[in-house]
Simulated assay, not measured.
Amino acid sequence: MSYTFAIGDIHGCREPLRKLQAMIEARWASGTIVYIGDYIDRGPDSRGVIDLLKAGPAKPGWQWIMLKGNHEDMMVGAYAGRYDRDWWLDNGGLETELSYDGRVPTEVLAWADRLPLMHLDAHRIFVHAGVNPEVPLEKQSPQDLLWLRPQNSAYYWGKHLCHGHTPSRINPRTIGNRTNIDSGCVFGGKLTCAVFDDDVAGGPLEFLKAAW
């Protein structure tokens, strides 16, 4: 058996992330961890989260896949001049810059810019925000993958959709063929991980949660 673990929006909450990673590694010897994006902004230690993720797995047998969230896109766009800088700062970017003593390093911006927008396996679609079921999967726009807020469930090309981006204290929850794992850790909730059996279609087997 092999398993995939999807971790929701972190937003600078390094200690809950460390706890969640330890919980996973205590029960499973190997697997794939998909980080759903939004590693930075609002929380107290964006730099610590990025350093941890960039370092990669500390133990053999693990694969980490880090997707881009809308907050990584805002940060990169603000530095590149594509987005208004104040828009990003007002949405948590100020906390990120403070964690880097005033300026995010070029190598961090390059790392964030290269992050993929989607991860697919045999049975599931992992994205930060959502997908448009009326558009072919291979033609999804970055805008939808980073910003969409799904209201219902859909067929999703025969796969289960796992996403974050829309926080709620009632998350994680599965609605039909879709699971939202953003449980609002930075807003006082918990950091969530959805556990999937790679050989079995459908939603998660269970959820793991870590608090401060």
Rank of each mutant, 00 (worst) to 15 (best):
M1V: 13
S2K: 07
T4P: 03
F5V: 02
A6D: 03
G12I: 02
P16K: 08
R18T: 14
K19R: 15
K19D: 11
A22R: 14
G31T: 03
V34H: 00
I36R: 01
G37I: 02
D38R: 01
Y39V: 07
R42I: 05
R42M: 04
R42D: 00
D45Q: 01
D45E: 01
I50R: 05
D51W: 04
D51Q: 14
L52A: 14
L53A: 10
K54R: 15
P57Q: 01
K59W: 01
W64Q: 11
I65D: 05
I65G: 05
M66F: 12
N70I: 02
H71W: 02
E72P: 03
D73W: 08
M74D: 07
V76R: 00
G81A: 03
G81Q: 09
G81E: 11
D84P: 07
L89P: 06
G92P: 03
G93L: 05
E95C: 10
T96Q: 01
E97W: 04
S99A: 13
D101K: 14
V104A: 09
P105Y: 12
T106S: 13
T106W: 08
E107C: 09
V108L: 09
V108P: 10
A112F: 08
A112G: 13
L115Y: 05
L117A: 03
D121K: 09
D121M: 08
H123I: 12
R124K: 07
I125S: 05
V127W: 00
V127L: 00
H128A: 02
A129D: 00
V131L: 07
N132K: 09
N132C: 10
V135I: 15
V135F: 11
V135R: 14
K139T: 08
Q140Y: 12
S141R: 14
P142A: 03
L146A: 05
R149H: 10
P150N: 06
W157R: 11
K159Q: 15
L161T: 00
C162V: 15
C162I: 15
T166M: 02
S168T: 06
I170Q: 15
I170C: 13
N171W: 11
P172Y: 07
R173A: 13
T174P: 06
I175A: 14
I175R: 14
I175K: 12
G176I: 14
T179K: 07
N180M: 08
S183V: 09
S183Q: 11
G184H: 04
C185E: 02
C185D: 02
V186Y: 06
V186C: 07
G188T: 01
G189N: 02
T192D: 06
C193V: 06
C193W: 09
C193I: 08
A194Q: 04
V195S: 06
F196G: 09
D197M: 12
D198S: 13
A201T: 08
A201M: 09
G203P: 09
G203A: 12
P204K: 11
E206I: 07
L208R: 11
L208G: 02
K209L: 14
A210D: 12
W212F: 13
